[in-house]
Simulated scan of single mutants.
Amino acid sequence: MVVIYGINKHLNPIKRELSETIHACMQSVLGMPEDKRAHRIVPLDESDFFYPGGRTEAYTVIEINMMKGRTPETQKALIKALFKTISSTVGISPVDIEITIKEQEKYQWGFRGMTGDEAADLQYKVDV
């Protein structure tokens, strides 16, 4: 699951394109299927979104929640692909993008009535 935060007046106009871009990177780097997109867009009022100095109002936070199994190299490749592709496609400068990958054990994921470690029919690899 991906959660994307930003100031509403900047995030709302680009949210579809940003979601498409993020998913394309996840397909390319992680091998995620086309229909395996779970994105949550959280547009915030300027008064509810504080960000570090040296950033603009385009500052965007991307939290990626995934089951453990991807190597550090794979995770770094995803982060670098996101910086590059979001910058060139959506126009957000890498300085205005913050990406956090949060990993949880497979048994800590619940979907389709089972836990992630019980799912034998995933159409993508977790251990990459």
Rank of each mutant, 00 (worst) to 15 (best):
N8S: 14
M66E: 14
V42C: 15
G53K: 11
V90N: 08
I14C: 02
V2K: 05
C25P: 00
S19C: 13
M67L: 13
G91Q: 03
S93T: 14
G91R: 03
C25Q: 09
V42M: 15
P94L: 15
T89F: 00
A38R: 05
A38W: 05
E98D: 01
I7H: 03
T74H: 08
G69Q: 14
R70V: 14
Q27S: 03
I97P: 05
S93Q: 15
K76I: 09
E17Y: 00
I41Y: 02
A58S: 09
Y124K: 04
Y59E: 08
T60F: 10
Y5M: 09
K80P: 00
R55H: 08
G113R: 03
Q75L: 11
I4W: 01
V90H: 04
M1R: 11
K9M: 02
I97H: 01
K9C: 06
E103P: 12
I99L: 12
L82F: 10
H10A: 02
N8P: 00
D35K: 04
M67W: 12
D121I: 00
A120P: 00
Q27M: 07
R37D: 01
A58C: 07
V2E: 05
E34S: 02
N8E: 14
T100L: 11
V126W: 09
E57F: 01
E73I: 02
Q108W: 14
I101E: 05
D127S: 14
G91T: 05
K9V: 11
L122D: 06
V90Y: 03
F83K: 12
R37A: 06
A58R: 10
I14S: 02
E17L: 08
S28C: 04
E20R: 10
L82A: 12
C25M: 06
T89Q: 10
T89K: 07
V3P: 00
